[in-house]
Each structure stands twice: as structure tokens, then as C-alpha cells.
Design a protein around this nucleic acid. Structure first.
Length: 856
RNA sequence: GCGAGGGUGGCGGAAUUGGCAGACGCGCCAGAUUUAGGAUCUGGUGGGUUUCCCGUGCGGGUUCAAGUCCCGCCCCUCGCACCA
């Protein structure tokens, strides 16, 4: 290490300790000007890497900027500690999930402390702690009482590998989001939260978040909720009594219905099959469909299949008989699970009808022009062959038909959502037990509140998933008495989805030690809503929907002050890193096994390796662990590397070059102070009206830097904020007069500007300048509005649209003067000589544009 | 298929109420310093046939002026996707 290099380690440790001592990060009891900044809490698994750190660094910059703007900050941290990895580690290594989890929490916490983030650790929570999950269970009961938690037997997503059911949100492309195994449908009795009751408000209130949440996330949620306005049409079954409701957005095509199709899972089939002449065949088809994975059923290339039941329904408007089919492309939980088939006006129905020889009947024609009878036409148009509705344009026709159906009592306007109720039961051990008792006499009985928490038993023989909860085998846990009748009863063996834990944690932070209720109304009123939430975009349709739902339930109960939990959201990009992949061996290759010739080669097999740049992950072997990195390079280097690499919302690549740059910058700042420390006059007073030209230039640069850094930080443009600081540092390096008060003032302000980004360095320099308080107890600098521009500016002169010269003018020169100066410029003369100026455009302070034509 | 975002030097990226394209950094080149290397400091660095010309994915257009606006394409990333 060179002599003047920044002694990172002593300094960072020193200030972290001191911040702790002076209670810099303590939350104020009674905030006057509250600001709640929150990063999505981590699942504490093995190692904290740079991909995780980016989230916390961004949060910390926001917290420190707001602190320096005079806000009372709430900035807590905790652990999303229930979940599968702990259990899998238990299965693999025979460790208790508790032990494994708390060990990881300690490592995580230590690492987070080593990077000097401003958390108030007094408010730390862990979702697996009984004093937390007690309240998760309380919330379950709260929803149960409100009729928002219910149990039903349904076809649910089941992962055959994890041996548990999954919420719709946890199925990605038909696969389990954890292990990638194709999900199958299983009929099970499970607990659901009735999030669909809130579908409309979850959609509607997205408007409140516009401009404050990334539009991409808002769109994704809109899409996920998937509100669709249409019409319900009730077809009567051939028995004249059983109702077969369908949902359609194209009621104008109803006269073209030649068949209806029912999802294989649909309960109504039990009734219909009794009349089916080919019952066995249909049942066989249904069985096959149910055994298929979601992927097999929804594969797009796949031709639609179905089977005719041999039974009929009655068309509500024509009275005609239409065939009833069963087909696996119909989804049981969208709309009514029954669709009307209109082959002439729907592509799918058309293919289906052609395949099975079902009649095709044209009932809509283009507004202008004609189509052949039986030809596919899916646009809106004019209704034909539709009785009294013939001649109506589609949209009017839809309204007319809705009206008619309503009068007949056979349907009307209807809304359908893509969003489904939230399945929260899990047949796994490491989660909060569902606090209900099953009594042979009383049925489902909620555990009384004062008996919470229902503790997770500790002596488990096997965590191995069997398709039912491991708790089922723990007699001490399962056997209990009914809270209602006192007779023998069984506990519910399932645990809750971990997304239930995380749907309310931001509320627990406002009152983390409350042992009377999950949080008090008064604390919630002090701090909620979260002013700035920061996290990964992958939670767009999971955590962020669940949390909004739970918050709304509390809002309706008057327990929280706002209908939305997170008033602003920022989603950071991922951290990628290069690694080597052998396309022949099909494996990740460590650097040690790479031979570099004209490119990377695999030492083992001699083949050329691919260089891939992807998200940091253990399996790719491309993680940069935070702990070791900070020990080697320091926290501020890690922070600057992350923040300067590019826009925070975009993915970045972690490179050694980036680390070098950050390090160089920090050392450059450090040297600037070490070289000048005796010359800096802490009490220097600058009178901007009495400065020489060079001083004034620096003074204006300082004001501009302050202006830009403030603006960029507020907009999460940390990369450009740091670039502006670098420019100021460069300007100070070339400044020739270290005795000038402007120099002293600039160095003092620079420390303040740097503080949110490189807090340890800034605190050290602040103290070197002779200050005794913390740099963070000072306000972020203000700029002098009168000195945001330099006196003389360079104005480019365009002639016929091309820049031909630049002239120096005084900043307050008027158009006439600029023109006069331009005409005196040699190069401008050269391009205008003998020509006529036909047009002059002057943009004050920006440019002068001349349009010339050949003379006469 | 639908929706969103993006395509700018050798690289990461700046700049959009239309107004100097390439801020800042990396890399590279040169000089200073040094026994040497490294580190550091200073200067340079879009391309070319260099009084000038060409350059922001491609092709057109509007304008004194286009990365930015309009029309038509291509490519990439992400989300949803048999949604009736």
C-alpha cells in the first residue's frame, strides 16, 4: 500500500462503532417529520452477496440523504426466516432448521453491520420467532372472523418434488418457482385467503401509485388481476333446471353458439355424466386430463382435444339444442369454468369445431364488406342472423343482449378476474402453524387468541416431505382439546405460506415489541405508510399484491392510516457477473480450471469455453461475497462500485475494473484532503461578489454540483450524482490557489455531498476538518441560486444547421450583441461571406443558428 | 399473440419541454515522477480519404436544428399468455 492510501479498515470500524455509541440510527419516539424507508427483508440463507447488497446500499443512500434533509428516519431490518431452504438443509445435513436459520441470521447481521448501513437494530424482527408468528396466526384468525379465510376442497397446484401445494403466484410457466418441477393439479382441502374480494380495489388503487411506483410493476399487477368486463349467459341443461352459466366478452356472437364446453374439473359434470350415453369414455378423458401437468395442458402448439358428452343445453335466446363438450383447454377457475363455443367468431372455437365437425354459424359481419358463411371473423362488426338484434353494431348489441338476458333472468353484465384466491396452506414444517382445531363434533374451531402462539414443535423425527405435513406425525402437537366443547380434537397440521409472514412485516417494525397486538394503531399512525420501499421487481405479483391486500384489510378495520402500504416503490436491477461455461461438459468452470490462450479453454477437456454474464448465484459460481470483499476493499468501495456502475434500476455487471475505479476515486478524494488539510480554513467566509475569475469559476462549479447532486439523488440517479462529485474533485485538483476561501468552502461542502455515498470516508474527513459532531447531523448543502451559471459562456454558432464556430459571450448578452459578436468571428465570416442571412434563431444561453443563402 | 422497456465509442454509461452527441468512469496512447515495476500526477483518445466529411439499430419524413418528434421495419430483454 502506498503511503498516502486511505487506511480503510481502521477508519471504517472506528466510525461504525462511534455511530453506534452516539445512537445515530436510533428511531425517534415521536417523529415530527417522519420518513419510513424500507428494503425488502432478506431470506437468510448461506451468504450475502453483491446482488443482495445493492438493495441495501440504495436504501442506505436514501436513508442518509433524508437524514441530512432533517427527517426523522425509520429504517429497520429483519429476516424473512421461515421457508423451504432451512428445511432442506435440515433434511440434507440433519441440522435443526431453527439452528440453521439463526446461524445465518447472525452471519447476515454481522455482514450488514460491516458495511455500515443505518439500521435501527432495536427493531429487528424474525418471522420464525414465536413473538412474531404469534401475530401472523392472529392475523389468520382476524381474516377468518371477517370471512376472508376459508377452507375448501379444490384442484390446486401441487409440486411433486417439494411435496406441497403452491399458490397460483408461485407457479412460473407451469413449474414450481423453487425447484422447476412441473406442477400438477390435485384435489385437496386447503385454506384460502379471499383476496378476490379486494380485486377491484387492488386494481382501482393502482391509480394512487402512478408516478410513484414503476409503471412496469403497476402494469404487471393490472395484468395479474386481469379484470375483464363481459356478460354472463345462462344456458339451461336439457333437464330444464340445471344452470350452465358461461362468461363471455362477446355476447354479440351469442346467436352463433353451436356448442358449449366444460372444464374437466368442473363439479357440474357429476350431474351431466349421469345422462351421458358414453359416460365411460368421457370419464376416461377427464381422468387423463387431470393427470396432465399444467405445461402439457397449455402447450400452445398442442391441438385442442375434447369429447362430446352426448348431452345438450338449451340456447337461452333461440331455444335450440347445443352440444355439451368437455375439453381441457377450458380453465376451471376463470370465468365460470364453462365457455360457449362460437366457431365463426373465435379462433379456438373455430379450430375445435373444424376438428370435430361441429356446425359453424356466422352471426357477425364486417361493417363494410362481407364474408362467406362459415368463414372465421373475429373482429367487431354488425350482427346478422340474430333475431331482433340483427343489424346492431357489436358493441350496441352486447348491451342490448345483456338487457334482454337480465329481463329473462338468464344472465346480464358480469366481471371476471384472472386473480384467484390465495392458497395459503403448505404441507411443510418450517412455517407458522395454522391456528385452528378440527373437532369431530364442532368441526373447524379457531384457536382462541389468548392461546396463541400455536408453537411449532421442536422434536421432529423427519422433515422429509411426504405430501402431507411432517407435523401430522407429532402426536404431542396434533392431539389437543376442542376450545369449544373440550372434547378430544386434532390441530391443523399445515403451516402458512411464508408470503403470509411477509405480507405484514412492515407493520410490525412500527411497534416490534408489542405483546398485546400485532402493532398499535397509534404507532401505525406515526409511521405508516412506508415512504420509500425498495426491492426486487420479481415480487411484482407476489409479495407486493399480498401486502397491499393485507394492508387494505387492516385499513378497513381502521388499524392503519392509509389504504396503500407503500407510497413509493423503487425496484433495483440485478447484479450480474461473468463466469465460464463449458458447452461440451455442460458445466460451470471455475477460473482455476480455465486456460487462457487466444481465449478461455477448459483445462479438463480442452474445449473453448463460453463467457456468460448472468445473475450472481451459487450454482453459477459467480457470487462476490460481501463479507470477504469488505474485509479486503472496504465498505465504501463496495458502495461506490454498486452505485456508479450504472442506473440503479438497471441490471449491472460486477467487474474488477469497476472495483478499481471506485477504489481510485476514494483514494483520490482522500489525497485531496491529506495534501491540503493544513490550508483548509474551517471558518472561511466566501463573498461571491468579491472573487477573482478562477475563484468564481470554482464557486459556480460548486453550486452546480450541489444542485445536480441533490436533484440526481432524489431521482435515484446515483451514478450521475457520483459523476458530478467526481467533476468537482477534478476541479479542485486543478485549482491553483489553496489559500482561497472558496477552496476551503468547497472541500467542506464536498464532504457533505459525499456522505450518503461513502459515509465512512466522509465522516473521517469531516472530523479531520476539525468538526466534532457527525457529518450526518448536518444538513445536506444548499446551493446559491444566483451563481448556478458561469459569467461567460460558449455559444455554438450554426450555419445552415452545422456548428461552424463557437464564441464566448457574457451570460447576460442579448440577441443583438451575440449576433454582433458572431458576425465579427472569423470563421462565421468565412461561411457567410457573399451570402444573405435569411433567418436567425437565437436560443438564449444555448446557441445561435444562422440560415444563409447565396447572394442576390 | 398482448403489454412494458431498450438498441449511443473498444467497454459501463451521459445527454430527451427538439438546441454543442459521447459528461463521468474503465481501457488505451504519450509525458512527468521512479533504480525498476506498481501507484500517482498532467495531457490525449468516436471514425475517416482531416480547410472538410461521416457518425446514436435500419429505411423514410418534419425542422434553421432530430439520439430526442412522426411513419414503416429489424433486433434484444422482461412480464402475461388456450382468459372465453
Amino acid at each position: 500500500m502506498a503511503k498516502k492510501d486511505y487506511p480503510i479498515h481502521e477508519i471504517e470500524k472506528k466510525w461504525q462503532k462511534w455511530w453506534d455509541e452516539i445512537g445515530l440510527h436510533k428511531t425517534r419516539e415521536n417523529p415530527k417529520n417522519k420518513y419510513y424507508v424500507l428494503e425488502m427483508f432478506p431470506y437468510p440463507s448461506g451468504d450475502l452477496h453483491m446482488g443482495h447488497l445493492k438493495n441495501y446500499v440504495i436504501g442506505d443512500v436514501v436513508a442518509r440523504v433524508k437524514l441530512m434533509e432533517g427527517y426523522d428516519i425509520l429504517h429497520p431490518m429483519g429476516w424473512d426466516a421461515f421457508g423451504l431452504p432451512a428445511e432442506n438443509a435440515a433434511i440434507k445435513h440433519g441440522i435443526d432448521p431453527r439452528e440453521w436459520t439463526y446461524k445465518n441470521i447472525n452471519t447476515y447481521k454481522e455482514t450488514l453491520k460491516s458495511i455500515g448501513i443505518t439500521y435501527d437494530w432495536d427493531r429487528e424482527i424474525a418471522t420464525c420467532a414465536p413473538d412474531y408468528y404469534r401475530w401472523t396466526q392472529w392475523i389468520f384468525l382476524f381474516l377468518y372472523k371477517k370471512g376472508l379465510a376459508y377452507r375448501k376442497s379444490d384442484y390446486v397446484n401441487y409440486c411433486p418434488n417439494c411435496k406441497t401445494v403452491l399458490a397460483n403466484e408461485q407457479v412460473i410457466d407451469g413449474k414450481c418457482e423453487r425447484c422447476g418441477t412441473p406442477v400438477v393439479k390435485k384435489k385437496l382441502e386447503q385454506w384460502f385467503f379471499k383476496i378476490t374480494d379486494y380485486a377491484d380495489r387492488l386494481l382501482e388503487d393502482l391509480k394512487l401509485l402512478e408516478g410513484r411506483w414503476p409503471s412496469k410493476i403497476i402494469k404487471q399487477q393490472e395484468n395479474w388481476i386481469g379484470r375483464s368486463e363481459g356478460t354472463e349467459i345462462i344456458f339451461l341443461y336439457q333437464d330444464g333446471r340445471t344452470k350452465l352459466p358461461v362468461f363471455t366478452t362477446r355476447a354479440d356472437t351469442v346467436f352463433g353458439v353451436t356448442f358449449i364446453t366444460i372444464a374437466p374439473e368442473h363439479e357440474i359434470l357429476e350431474r351431466i355424466l349421469k345422462d351421458s350415453p358414453n359416460r365411460e369414455e368421457v370419464e376416461k378423458y377427464i381422468q387423463e386430463a387431470l393427470q396432465k401437468t399444467e405445461i402439457e395442458r397449455t402447450a400452445e402448439e398442442k391441438e385442442k382435444t375434447g369429447i362430446f358428452t352426448g348431452t345438450y343445453a338449451i340456447h337461452p335466446l333461440t331455444g335450440e339444442k347445443v352440444q355439451i363438450w368437455v375439453a381441457d383447454y377450458v380453465l376451471v377457475n376463470y370465468g365460470t369454468g364453462i365457455v360457449m363455443g362460437v366457431p365463426a367468431h373465435d379462433e379456438r372455437d373455430y379450430m375445435f369445431a373444424r376438428k370435430y365437425g361441429i356446425p359453424i354459424k356466422t352471426v357477425v359481419k364486417p361493417v363494410d364488406g362481407d364474408i362467406e358463411e362459415g368463414e372465421l371473423f373475429t373482429d367487431y362488426g354488425v350482427m346478422v342472423n340474430s333475431g331482433e338484434f340483427s343489424g346492431l353494431p357489436s358493441k350496441e348489441g352486447i348491451r342490448a343482449i345483456q338487457k334482454k338476458l337480465k329481463e329473462m333472468g338468464l344472465g346480464g353484465p358480469a366481471v371476471s378476474y384472472r386473480l384467484k384466491d390465495w392458497l395459503i396452506s403448505r404441507q411443510r414444517y418450517w412455517g407458522a402453524p395454522i391456528p385452528v382445531v378440527h373437532c369431530p363434533r364442532c368441526g373447524v374451531v379457531p384457536v382462541p387468541e389468548d392461546e396463541l402462539p400455536v408453537l411449532l414443535p421442536e422434536n421432529i423425527k423427519s422433515f422429509k416431505p411426504q405430501g402431507r405435513s411432517p407435523l401430522e406425525d407429532v402426536d404431542e402437537f396434533m392431539n389437543t382439546t376442542c376450545p369449544k366443547c373440550g372434547g378430544p380434537a386434532k390441530r391443523d397440521p399445515d403451516t402458512m405460506d411464508t408470503f403470509v409472514d411477509s405480507s405484514w412485516y412492515y407493520l410490525r417494525y412500527v411497534d416490534p415489541h408489542n405483546d398485546k397486538e400485532p402493532f398499535s394503531k397509534s404507532e401505525a399512525e406515526k409511521w405508516m405508510p412506508v415512504d420509500q420501499y425498495i426491492g426486487g421487481a420479481e415480487h411484482a405479483t407476489k409479495h407486493l399484491i399480498y401486502a397491499r391486500f393485507i394492508n387494505k384489510v387492516f385499513f378497513d378495520a381502521g388499524m392503519v392510516p392509509s389504504s396503500e402500504p407503500f407510497s413509493a416503490l423503487f425496484t433495483q436491477g440485478l447484479v450480474h457477473k461473468k463466469f465460464y461455461w463449458c458447452p461440451v461438459c455442460k458445466e460451470v468452470v471455475e477460473e482455476a480450471d480455465v486456460e487462457f490462450k487466444d481465449g478461455p479453454y477448459h483445462k479438463k477437456c480442452g474445449n473453448r469455453l463460453e463467457e456468460r454474464v448472468e445473475m450472481m448465484s451459487k450454482s453459477r459460481g459467480n457470487v462476490v461475497r460481501v463479507g470477504p470483499f469488505v474485509r479486503e476493499h472496504g465498505a465504501d468501495v463496495a458502495r461506490i462500485t454498486i452505485l456508479f456502475a450504472g442506473p440503479a434500476e438497471k441490471d449491472m455487471e460486477w467487474t474488477d475494473a469497476g472495483v478499481e475505479g471506485a477504489k481510485r476515486f476514494i483514494n483520490r478524494v482522500w489525497r485531496l484532503y491529506q495534501d491540503n488539510i493544513e490550508k483548509i480554513d474551517k471558518n472561511a467566509k466566501v463573498d461571491p461578489s468579491k472573487l477573482n475569475r478562477e475563484e468564481k469559476k470554482l464557486y459556480v462549479t460548486l453550486q452546480r454540483t450541489i444542485y445536480e447532486v441533490r436533484k440526481d439523488s432524489a431521482e435515484f440517479h446515483f451514478n450521475t450524482a457520483i459523476a458530478r462529485i467526481m467533476e468537482l474533485v477534478n476541479a479542485l485538483y486543478s485549482f491553483q490557489n489553496p489559500e482561497s476561501p472558496v477552496f476551503s468552502e468547497s472541500l467542506q461542502k464536498l464532504v457533505l455531498l459525499l456522505a450518503p455515498f461513502a459515509p465512512h470516508l466522509a465522516e473521517e474527513l469531516w472530523h479531520q476538518l476539525g468538526n466534532e459532531d457527525s457529518v450526518f447531523r448536518n444538513r445536506f448543502p444548499e446551493y446559491n441560486e444566483d451563481y448556478l451559471t458561469h459569467d461567460t459562456i460558449e455559444i455554438p454558432v450554426q450555419i445552415n444547421g452545422k456548428v461552424r464556430s463557437r464564441i464566448l459571450v457574457s451570460v447576460d448578452a442579448g440577441e443583438e450583441e451575440v449576433k454582433r459578436l458572431a458576425m465579427g468571428d472569423e470563421r462565421v465570416r468565412k461561411f457567410t461571406e457573399g451570402k444573405v442571412i435569411v433567418k436567425t434563431i437565437y436560443v438564449p444561453g444555448k446557441l445561435l443558428s444562422l440560415v444563409v443563402k447565396d447572394g442576390n
